[in-house]
Amino acid sequence: MTFKYALGALSAIGLALGAGTASADTLADVKAKGSVQCGVSQGLPGFSNQDDSGNWTGIDVDVCKAVAAAVFGDANAVKFTPLSAKERFTALSSGEVDILSRNTTWTMTRDTQLGLNFAGVNYYDGQGMMVPAGLGVTSALELDGASICTNTGTTTELNITDFFRANKMGFELVAFEKADEVVAAYDAGRCDVYTTDRSGLAAQRLKLADPAAHIVLPEVISKEPLGPVVRQGDDVWFNIVRWTLNAMINAEELGVTSGNAAAMASSDNPGIKRLLGTEGNFGEALGLSNDWAMQVISQVGNYGESYEAHVGANTPLKLNRSGSVNALWTNGGLIYAAPIR
């Protein structure tokens, strides 16, 4: 896209001109602007998606709202920038956005070579494959010679290549820039297989002409820990994002919800008191006010509330939480946060 390539060039210049100020003290910049600039997807239901009235919703959106609540005490002090998979890192490193909360997989390359820091994991995903039920395939190992549709600029391209090479199978990869075109091309029969993260498959199949005529194969071919990303070299801002996410997870573990947070502030449990700022100076240590987590939980909710509202069993995505890796660690899942003490 001509303008994309212009955008790339502009971002490069932006990197040259702006990053010096943007990366040094993001918290001060954010406070000066009065809002958090949040990089999100171009529309992935459950994670970051605009509803009918133009409001952004989703678990990735909630992370940004929580950071805004922690910094400003106002979860609505967020501005959203929809980014394609290939624009996202440039947008973050050029200072165009303050947080990238866009179903982004934490990998070693990204952590060490792209100048980024992953502030935690808000969804444990894995790459899966969807095929038309009429194809008669029950395992990904039967897919020798298949055409595969996916997004460009993501780890899915690498994973699917690795999987087919490891199993000595031939395939054809058709990589589009935007998810909508991937879905449309798959729906038109261009490909036998649509591959992306399994949460993405659950979300995108809703856009197919006949969602029931497609099955997700049992193989999970990769680990995809998704989480918010910030620029490397700004530890203050990194800590704020990391501990905002940790606060949401700890709140769920401690039973603090958006409904009872105000009442819980006078609880006898020291863990809850430290979380909600009635004991200790944890907020000030982050450079925020002491009721930072109180604002996060009362305005956005704890991790479990966010999950059930956007991707859980009662949403169109129907990603059942109990028994999955995204359950709280006390329930046998992987969702675990370092303690606030």
Binding site: T109, A175, F176, E177
Partner: peptide, 25 residues
Amino acid sequence: LAIAIAYPDLVSIFAGTALNQVGQE
């Protein structure tokens, strides 16, 4: 504009996929 419909031209595979793996804008 090829990238929109998955034709692997220079912008699509080099500025798209490769740039995302390497990160040297």
